[in-house]
């Protein structure tokens, strides 16, 4: 029988209030937003928070806004809001690509961007997408509000730098010219976690890659990124050969978990294939065919 263990419930009305509650419960509280990871885990009793701190009514955490050379995405933005955002679609098609294949409409109606990142599931699509975009995470604690590059956000599976008395507030994605991005995913079925997924962002000056981001999900990449492949591509001219080589390098440096979604050799092959495909599509969107 799947019913959670007993827990207390608090409803936060502001970011400050939420942080106060986190401090008050001193590590025994868990923040709940969409609840699409936490509640199933509680029902299976894999998670047993003593207190749930509900942030669903914290308006400060909502909304997607363009702010100068950044796109700010509130932690409480629902997946569907991001999927439907014209601004995000125009600036960062990678996010729309990813959101389109995250779970199903019911989950996307309720699940949040911040919740997905804080869950830090090694198969989470948005972790790879925001890593490719080199976004920053804004975290509010009792004393300070700090900004952490998303690539330093993840400590390990299901573990982030957000402390027990801290709250992820928003993501800030830098807007720079010459960009193109894309996300590709292979899953066994619509709505399933990725067997492997790759997000790529390129910033081009003419044919030359001035900056690059490659995020890997479910493929056992350290911090969700293919740093070696990025280093290989930075400064190069876009080409099918270069993208294929980047795929090979990414595959070599990831360490895919073996599970019922596939054996390691397949996932490694998938990493190479999807890196090349996502780069090709990102480059196309930046106006350069390969």
């Amino acid at each position: 029988m799947q019913v959670p263990a007993q827990f207390e419930y608090e409803r936060a009305t502001s970011v400050a209030h939420a942080v106060d509650l986190l401090v008050k419960y001193n590590g025994a509280g868990r923040v709940i937003a969409g609840g699409h990871s936490l509640i199933p885990m509680m029902k299976l009793r894999l998670a047993r928070p003593e207190v749930l701190i509900d942030i669903n009514e914290v308006g400060e955490l909502a909304g997607i806004v363009r702010d100068g050379d950044e796109l700010r995405i509130g932690a409480l933005v629902r997946h569907n809001e991001l999927l439907d955002s014209a601004e995000a679609a125009q600036l960062f098609p990678i996010l729309v690509d990813a959101e389109r294949v995250i779970a199903d409409p019911i989950v996307r109606n309720r699940g949040t961007v911040g919740g997905s990142l804080c869950q830090a599931d090694p198969s989470e699509d948005l972790s790879a997408a925001f890593s490719a975009l080199r976004a920053d995470a804004v975290i509010q604690g009792p004393q300070i509000r700090r900004t952490v590059p998303i690539r330093d956000f993840f400590v390990g599976p299901y573990e982030t730098v957000v402390g027990p008395d801290e709250l992820l507030v928003e993501l800030r994605v830098p807007v720079r010219p010459g960009s193109g991005s894309a996300f590709v995913k292979v899953s066994r079925r619509a709505g399933d976690w990725a067997v492997g997924a790759v997000g790529a962002a390129v910033w081009l000056a003419g044919d030359v890659i001035t900056e690059i981001g490659i995020g890997l999900s479910a493929l056992g990449a350290q911090n969700f990124v293919a740093v070696e492949a990025e280093d290989f591509l930075r400064g190069r001219v876009v080409s099918a050969e270069a993208f294929a080589e980047a795929g090979r390098i990414a595959a070599e440096h990831c360490d895919p978990p073996v599970d019922q979604r596939g054996p390691a050799d397949y996932k490694r092959h998938l990493a190479a294939t999807l890196v090349a495909r996502s780069l090709t599509l990102a480059s196309h969107r930046a106006g350069r065919e390969v």
Binding site: V186, R188, V195, R261, G262, P263, D265, Y266, K267, H269, L270
Partner: peptide
């Protein structure tokens, strides 16, 4: 015939 099973069969 999952993606992995098909790819492995090809191999």
């Amino acid at each position: 015939l999952t993606p992995a099973a098909v790819w492995r069969a090809i191999q």
